[in-house]
Design a protein around this nucleic acid. Structure first.
Lengths: 233, 233
DNA sequence: TCACGGATTCTTACGCCGTAAGTGTGACGG
DNA sequence: CCGTCACACTTACGGCGTAAGAATCCGTGA
């Protein structure tokens, strides 16, 4: 909104633009994130943004990468060795969910756009190291990491999507509780008794099931008993 | 494209419109699904569609409901009693994945729009019945069904999204295999050795892990040994 | 000192979108 | 036979992403 004469610099950065886009999407929703409006927020015309971003799609990709980049460093802040692969996966899942919830605007994007950046590659490499050290075959480790990531994003997105609107909207608890109890006895009972269920607890239970399932199907003990690193590297 | 004079009926139906929209989205992608183009495919102006659909968002919701409606009836075609809750969940997961893969156009929508229709409610009620009969607490059964649905959609969406474009695009196998092997030893090895990995096998492994995890965390035996229905109902 | 060239920004414009509002036309019940 | 109503069309508005080009500022070498 600052008054600048033509040609005067606004001092923009790709980082600033992504920050503003993230804030706008979180505040007003994805549909409100338009190039014109984003430019207006930065005191600049829409076309100016194209000097920092090749297209709007690229900008959206940048948003997803940004959110993942904020989530990943936390995932392995617990230690250096491979103390407990399950705890590592759990920490990763919790960190990713927390970051996604803080940026509900990009949640629909994250579900459809895989983010590939050096930061995510580093994190995947570390995760593979921990899982293979615990006895996972490499292929199973890749599948486990991929499945967990996908699951966390999707579960969190569903959680956030259910949050908007009042509880009487179709599909929400109060609406389900008002269904025909003769036709849907279990559904209505669940909606009534579980109305106050904690989203975090649901998420925890679901990720625990998935992580536990990894251990069982890969034939790996629940805890890696060897505390030290393996002999090579 | 048929020549009709003004006011002459085209004989449209909401069903026809949804069918055409689904076909168009699958053929040309979601971005190509516009009201004008959809109308053109049906030999009608765009505004005419608004006599059958209140808005484009409602049309998209209809597409998701349609896809889920096609997937669900298959889920319980195996029997009447509750022979094996794990087999039931597996059949549901496989049926849903198959239907979603047949309609890649709506996959991004399914990830963001929960479909609530009588058909889905019936399916959920049946699923809850099977799980509680197998020993699941009601709350755990709800979480399990919800988690599985969300996971199947997300995993399939990721699978389909990775399919488009050549294998050398960022994030794809060939691209990963070309990374710095010194920095990403496990990642590059996985990309090279697992290049021919089967998507269906990955999906099967992941859903098996999740379903197995449900059994473990809910304290339910892997197979419900009682073949007959319970005494009530 | 000053011209110059690249970086940055603005202006204009095009074709597309979803859809509000109003107009015409055919089919059908009285 | 005629109203009436469902169906289809026309027109129009505001907004979108972005291509093309003009204007301005600033660092640099002559």
């Amino acid at each position: 909104m600052s008054t600048r004469s033509r040609g005067e610099r606004a001092g923009l950065t790709r980082e600033q633009i992504l920050d503003a886009a993230l804030a706008l999407a979180d505040r007003a929703g994805l549909k409100a994130l338009t190039m014109r409006r984003l430019g207006a927020e930065l005191g600049v015309e829409a076309m100016t943004l194209y000097h920092y971003v090749p297209s709007k799609d690229a900008l959206l990709d940048g948003l997803v990468e940004r959110v993942f980049a904020r989530a990943l460093p936390l995932a392995d802040a617990d230690g250096d060795g491979a103390p407990d692969w399950q705890a590592m996966l759990r920490a990763y899942a919790d960190a990713l969910r927390g970051t996604l919830l803080r940026h509900p605007g990009v949640l629909p994007l994250a579900a459809a756009r895989p983010a590939v950046t050096p930061a995510t590659l580093d994190a995947v490499e570390r995760g593979l190291g921990a899982l293979t050290a615990a006895g996972f075959p490499l292929g199973a480790a890749v599948d486990a990491l991929n499945s967990l990531s996908v699951f966390v994003v999707a579960h969190t997105a569903a959680e956030a999507a259910a949050e908007e609107g009042d509880a009487t909207a179709p599909g929400r608890a109060d609406w389900l509780a008002g269904l025909d109890a003769a036709r849907y006895p279990l559904l209505t009972e669940a909606a009534r008794t579980g109305a106050g269920a904690d989203d975090a607890a649901r998420f925890h239970a679901a990720t625990t099931a998935l992580i536990t399932g990894f251990a069982t199907t890969a034939g790996v003990p629940a805890h890696s008993s060897q505390t030290g690193p393996t002999t090579d590297d």
